[in-house]
Amino acid sequence: MIAKVYITLKNGVLDPQGQAVQKSLHLMGFQGLSSVRLGKYIEVCFEDSISKEKAKEELKSMCEKLLANTVIEDYRIELP
C-alpha cells in the first residue's frame, strides 16, 4: 500500500522559492498568477501486513515527529 503525504507551507509563511518560481513563470509569459507556493510530496510504502487504520495512525505520528515541521507546515495524508 502506497500512502501519499503532502507537506505545504502554512498560510502567512513567506515562500521565497515560490515567489522566485512565480517570477520566472511571469517572465515566461504566463499571466494571471496570484501566487505560487512550493511544497513536498512524499510516498511511504507499507508492507501488506499493515492495516489501513494502522498506517494512517503511523503516518500522522511520522508527520508530527519528522516529515513536517508543524510550526510552519501543514500536512495531508492520502491512503488508497
Binding site: 513567506l14 521565497p16 522559492q17 522566485a20 515541521n69 510550526v71 510552519i72
Partner: peptide, 8 residues
Amino acid sequence: VLLRNASL
C-alpha cells in the same frame, strides 16, 4: 524555525 534565506 530557520527558513531559506529570503535572497535564496
